[in-house]
Amino acid sequence: DTLHVTQDGKHIELRGLSEEEIKLVEELLRRGRKVEEALKIIEELRK
């Protein structure tokens, strides 16, 4: 699936995420994380 995010005035499209990963990214962003940080966390969880 694809998640569309706008952060720091930039539109970012995150592709290839599972539904659970999207929920996790959304939660991390709500808690003030940056998109880059959220993606690093997803990458770690995929290992």
Rank of each mutant, 00 (worst) to 15 (best):
R30G: 07
K40Q: 14
R31N: 09
E26L: 15
Q7K: 03
D8V: 03
V35L: 11
Q7C: 05
E21H: 02
G16P: 03
R31P: 01
H11S: 07
E21I: 02
L45A: 10
R33V: 14
I22Q: 10
H4L: 11
L45G: 07
I42R: 00
S18D: 08
R31S: 09
L28I: 07
H4M: 09
L45Y: 11
G32M: 04
L28Y: 13
K47L: 15
L3A: 08
V5L: 07
E20R: 10
R31W: 15
I41A: 10
T2Y: 10
R46K: 05
Q7P: 05
E26F: 15
L17K: 00
E36N: 09
K23R: 14
S18A: 08
E21Q: 02
T2K: 09
K10F: 10
K47S: 15
H11Y: 11
I41G: 02
R15P: 09
S18V: 05
K23I: 12
D8I: 03
I22T: 09
L3C: 11
R33H: 11
K34L: 13
E36F: 15
G9S: 03
H11E: 14
L14H: 03
K23V: 12
H4E: 10
K40M: 14
L14Y: 05
L29I: 11
R31A: 13
L29R: 02
I41S: 05
R31K: 09
E19Y: 14
L29H: 01
R30S: 10
G32R: 05
H4S: 08
E37G: 04
E13S: 08
D8Q: 03
K10L: 14
R15I: 12
G16L: 05
L3T: 08
L39A: 04
V35Y: 04
L24T: 09
E36H: 12
I12F: 15
H11P: 10
K47V: 14
I41R: 08
S18Y: 06
R46V: 03
S18N: 10
E44Q: 11
R31Q: 11
I12V: 11
L45C: 03
V5M: 05
L24S: 04
K34V: 07
E43V: 09
V35C: 01
I41W: 10
L39C: 02
K10H: 12
K10Y: 12
T2A: 05
G9R: 01
D8R: 01
R15C: 04
V5S: 05
L29T: 03
G9W: 01
L45V: 06
E20H: 11
D8A: 04
E21V: 02
K23A: 14
T6Q: 12
V25W: 04
L39D: 00
E44I: 10
V5T: 07
K10E: 13
L45P: 00
K40N: 11
V5W: 02
K10P: 06
K10N: 11
E21T: 02
R15S: 12
I42P: 00
L24C: 07
L24H: 07
E26W: 15
L28F: 13
R15K: 14
L24Y: 09
V5P: 05
K47D: 09
I41V: 11
L39H: 02
R30I: 05
K47N: 13
R46F: 04
E20I: 11
G9M: 02
E26Y: 15
H11I: 14
E20L: 09
G9V: 02
G32K: 05
R31T: 09
E44D: 12
L14R: 02
H11V: 15
L17H: 01
K34F: 08
L3S: 08
A38C: 07
E27C: 12
L24K: 06
I42G: 00
K34A: 10
G16Y: 07
L29M: 11
L45K: 06
I22C: 06
A38V: 15
K40F: 13
D1T: 07
I22M: 12
L24G: 02
A38M: 10
V35F: 05
E37C: 08
K40P: 02
L29A: 01
L29C: 02
E21R: 00
E43Y: 15
V5Q: 05
E37F: 14
D8W: 00
R30T: 05
K47Y: 13
E26T: 15
R31I: 11
V25N: 00
E36P: 08
G32H: 05
I42C: 01
A38K: 00
D1R: 04
A38P: 00
H11M: 07
L29Q: 01
R15E: 10
R33T: 14
V25P: 00
E27K: 14
I12T: 04
E13Q: 09
L24E: 04
H4I: 15
S18T: 14
E20A: 12
K34G: 10
R30N: 06
T2D: 08
E21D: 03
K23S: 11
L28H: 04
V5N: 06
H4A: 07
V25Q: 00
L14F: 05
K40R: 14
E43N: 09
K34C: 01
E44R: 09
I41K: 07
H11T: 14
L45T: 07
